[in-house]
Design a protein around this nucleic acid. Sequence first.
RNA 1: UGGGGCGUAGCCAAGCGGUAAGGCAGCGGGUUUUGAUCCCGUCAUGCGUAGGUUCGAAUCCUACCGCCCCAGCCA
Length: 557
Amino acid sequence: MTSESKPAHFLQNIIREDLAGGRVSEVVTRFPPEPNGYLHIGHAKSICLNFGLAQEFGGSCNLRFDDTNPAKEEEEYVESIKRDVSWLGFQWAGEAKYTSDYFDQLYDWALHLIKEGKAYVCHLSPEEARAYRGTLTEPGKNSPYRDRSVEENLALFEQMKNGEMKEGECSLRARIDMAAPNINLRDPIIYRIKKMAHHQTGDKWCIYPSYDFAHGQSDAMEGISHSICTLEFEDHRPLYDWFLENLPVPAHPRQYEFARLNLNYTVVSKRKLKQLVDEKHVDGWDDPRMPTLSGMRRRGVPPAAIRNFCEMIGVTRSDSVVDLGMLEYAIRDDLDKNAPRAMCVMDPLKVTLTNYPEGEEENLNAPGHPVREDLPARVLPFTRTLYIEREDFREEANKKYKRLVLGKKVRLRNAYVIHADEVVKDANGEIVELRCSVDRDTLGKDPADGVKPKGVIHWVSAEKNVDCEVRLYDRLFSDPAPDAGDKNFLDFVNPDNLEILSGCKAEIGLANAEPEQSYQFERNGYFCRDSKYGTVEKPVFNRTIGLRDSWAKEQDK
RNA sequence: UGGGGCGUAGCCAAGCGGUAAGGCAGCGGGUUUUGAUCCCGUCAUGCGUAGGUUCGAAUCCUACCGCCCCAGCCA
């Protein structure tokens, strides 16, 4: 720890004290997703927290699929979750675990509660149970089945397990306190009947434990020292503790809650994400505009950027909304340091260098990165005809415009200084070509007259380049809180969230770009080859994020 | 109107009785063959509000206000 390191957050403080005071000898955490959907940026915070804490304190972190509800869960998600956690850069301890691994033990513990008179089979229908539960301000009433004998409960529970009861006909409930102000303590259901195959246990069971009955005991079995979850589970903590106190568990882990991540301009609810996919607002769960980890991966977001972002935003108990700009900063910060540089002209304007011999070609060397000397240099073929960005030329402009102007000079990035001599237009007055002259004595040095061009623009050889398609993504929603209150988030889908450019010309080396390998297209932004679309001859590049653009800001003034 | 939480700058967030860290965004300037990066400067007489305790309060006490979560056989 250096003097300039971040101050510790409350969980780090708690762990430090637990370790120092001997309450725990080793830190064991767990990331417990339900395999019912794809992981998103919100999960990333939890992953980084749980795995990060284990790493920081020399402990370990389990990956545990919280699969107590076969109606909602699928094997497909198990695989995608493993892939995403690994991609983020974390390794779970041993094999991935499943709450369903513990169904036998959980069943025995249910029996234990029954024998202790602390659980009973209740034949109230779901509707009746709701009525008996009371309300937020009124206590509930005891179920008429609450005082069944141990023997009767044992027999009935056996029948439940054997499939002799119908779904919803009855359930096993903990016998706690129907008048408790905390509704979770009003005889919560701990086993329900679901005549349904489970993706891990097949048709072995037709009764399944509830989250509350499964989670703490699973933690205990795994020797979890700190069971970290989000704020909405805070009210469940007394119940978490009640089970651990009333069952012969090997340990009593403690639950701590933190505030989940909220990001403006972003929705992460599974239902809404699914709707975006189903209604074709996006191209799938891994669409680069999606806040899913698979979408961000495809878009070119480096996992380290997500980790740093999670580090930046901190861990607290206050419900807050993080500005998307922070995520964008973290992405740019990582990419600036690590992405090799390249040039790509999005909207090509042909330039002919009238004093450059036809058929001549030379290979110019360009660094792979302005400061990272470990990144390999590249070779740029320079020829008589080139492409520059259409918006990098004006027939006339004031001094603020630092690009190519008719009759003036500009530096071609990593190459020569050129002078714009003449504009060629078509019948409609459209500029179709620029005729320029090149100063061959300007490679790596200023012009002999000592007049240094103010601007530098990117370019690509018109004779040797990669024809490609470029996809420019913008934020998915135009409203900072698209799902706040009673708004319909679909009303705020940003109509300009995707712009597809074709006929873009990238430097030749990009022909071999690999998906997920990020590049900075100089003066433009960060890009990576798409893993889904494009061909060998004509790749598709996704813009991860643009460079900061103070010129655009200046122009808006 | 029951229970559980949370209120420090536009946003995130330190602070734990000794006179408001840091980051993002913003603004101003410098360097620059990327209008990027980098560097420098600037940005809360103020900590939800009102009282009180104290030599001294964001920190302690009291009251009030605002926001979030809970009435699935979901997690």
